[in-house]
């Protein structure tokens, strides 16, 4: 009804697909980043060989160089180096997982640092194993400490996913680009795209603060 340049129902479909791709890239890279980040943090905390130091060095690099550069490095570098095909989405997920892992590792280390170590010694004196101490004492307390940082990181990494459009991933931002080029309606397209990110970020924030409340319950008790 708007003619060639107007919005169509397919734009809505395109938006939904872009949203799906953005969410997929975000969720998978967050999960992988979390797994690797925790692993790196723990390897560092337990001082397992020089591996911890090397991994932290890589983390430092990932934290302190532009994600866009990392994205290009992975997308153009890995296929050339390993003689394999890498789809833009795969390259995006690899890059963001690594980048997220680097931040998570630092969060893990600082949250463990924040725990009073003498209670760990107490647990040890009661014959608890290191694994039990990690699971039952370190984990719950460091999670409570880390929660606000994790939520902040998640919201930030969600925005960072928009960068993957430059290597050809048809994510939410790329969809905005496509529709904008066709309709020439930047003041409709980009606010809608922006609002979509905003709503996603808010959802993460709300879910995060719910979790935060749950894990921090023991801290908010009134002191006498």
């Amino acid at each position: 009804m708007y003619g060639d340049d107007g919005f169509t129902i397919f734009d809505l479909q395109l938006w939904a697909e872009g949203l799906g791709i953005s969410a997929w890239v975000f969720i998978t890279s967050s999960i992988l980043g979390l797994l690797f980040g925790v692993l790196i943090g723990l390897i560092r905390y337990y001082r397992i060989s020089v591996l911890g130091k090397i991994l932290m060095l890589i983390s430092e690099f990932l934290k302190n160089s532009p994600v866009l550069v990392q994205l290009f490095l992975v997308y153009f570098g890995i296929p050339a180096l390993l003689m394999i095909d890498l789809s833009p989405v795969e390259a995006a997920i690899i890059t963001l997982s690594g980048n997220t892992a680097a931040f998570i590792a630092v969060i893990v280390i600082s949250s463990i640092d924040a725990i009073d170590k003498k209670q760990l010694e107490a647990a040890r004196s009661f014959a608890m194993s290191e694994w039990q101490i990690l699971k039952l004492i370190i984990y719950p307390q460091s999670l409570a400490f880390a929660m606000p940082m994790l939520v902040g990181l998640a919201i930030n990494q969600l925005q960072v996913t928009s960068l993957v459009s430059v290597i050809g991933v048809v994510d939410l931002t790329r969809v905005g680009d496509i529709v904008n080029l066709r309709t020439f309606e930047p003041f409709i397209v980009w606010p809608v795209i922006g609002a979509t990110y905003f709503v996603l970020a808010k959802m993460i924030g709300i879910a995060g603060s719910k979790l935060e409340n749950r894990f921090n319950r023991y801290k908010r008790v009134t002191n006498i």
Binding site: D116, K118, Q119, E121, A122, A123, R124, S125, F126, A127, I137, P140, Q141, A144, Y218, K219
Partner: peptide, 17 residues
């Protein structure tokens, strides 16, 4: 460690429990 239990100067209770 199962035979010897310690009471600590700073209590060192587990604050999250």
């Amino acid at each position: 460690r199962k035979k010897c239990a310690t009471v600590f100067q700073q209590f060192d209770l587990y604050p999250h429990l």
